[in-house]
């Protein structure tokens, strides 16, 4: 690292992009072209910018985010599948001065952990949730999630998801929007730089909400899973634009 810096200096180059201070400089165990690392990085940049690395606590979940604690230089705990909001609640109730955030996929948050999500929101629990919606179970290699779009072929909807058999894609933001405990709620996307910048703005507001003690905050981020969507990363980005956003419109739904 130092060597590189010196060399860059010698060459008169300015370092404009590096690993955020609260991230470990280790390779991430995630597929190439996946948007999980973008979401990881957004969390880290925000923690650095808000100067909260000494009191931020990361609760990782079960899914492709299961190794998240390895990538962050933050205190943290790994939670059982779906239970991250409950674990975060336990930490926050002991240490209200900490900034406690969970990082969860859509199987984790919207299926097995939906009760924990809704009740943490209903309580107005002062925690922040980074919610990665890639419309599929990535970690277990591509089964149908409650968020899977109609018609999408997954390993457990090999004929394409049909509403008749398995109902409709679950819109988590719509579910949470009416709860008075929710202080900040937004859906963003990670498929292009301009959207990533928007996502960062929302996620930062969510963290700020917690710093100000306003209540529960959640940012859903539409993400890709090129491996299980069986697509090239660029194709996957296009799919977000063409198919996913129409089903899950972006926006800030609650801002207090």
């Amino acid at each position: 690292m130092i060597d590189t810096l010196e060399t860059m200096d010698d060459a008169g180059l300015e370092l404009v992009y590096t690993v955020p201070a609260c991230m470990e400089p280790v390779p991430m165990r995630l597929c190439p072209g996946c948007t999980h690392p973008i979401a990881h990085r957004l969390c880290a940049e925000i923690v650095d910018e808000l100067g909260i690395a000494d009191r931020a606590v990361l609760i990782s979940s079960v899914g492709c985010s299961v190794f998240a604690n390895e990538f962050f230089r933050l205190d943290g705990a790994q939670a059982a599948h779906g239970r991250a909001p409950a674990v975060a609640t336990g930490v926050k109730r002991v240490h209200p001065e900490n900034i406690v955030f969970t990082y969860q996929g859509d199987g984790d948050l919207a299926s097995i952990g939906l009760a924990e999500t809704i009740h943490a929101a209903a309580r107005g629990e002062d925690i922040t949730i980074a919610f990665i919606n890639n419309g599929i179970y990535g970690m277990t290699r591509g089964q149908m999630a409650p968020t899977t779009l109609l018609g999408h072929k997954t390993t457990t909807s090999p004929y394409g998801r049909s509403a008749e058999d398995t109902g409709y894609p679950l819109d988590v933001c719509a579910l949470l929007q009416t709860l008075p405990g929710v202080a900040f709620l937004a859906r963003e996307s990670l498929h292009a730089p301009k959207y990533v910048r928007r996502a960062k703005r929302s996620l930062k507001k969510a963290f700020q909400c917690q710093i100000e003690g306003k209540g529960f905050s959640l940012v859903e981020m539409l993400s890709t899973c090129p491996s299980c969507w069986h697509m090239e990363p660029l194709e996957a980005f296009e799919r977000i634009e063409k198919e996913v956003i129409p089903q899950y419109p972006l926006g800030v739904f609650v801002e207090k």
Binding site: R83, V87, G90, E116
Partner: peptide, 14 residues
């Protein structure tokens, strides 16, 4: 009870 034990997990972690 599922949430309860996991809240305990969080508090115990502290």
């Amino acid at each position: 009870e599922v949430a309860a034990i996991n809240m305990c997990y969080g508090a115990a972690a502290c």
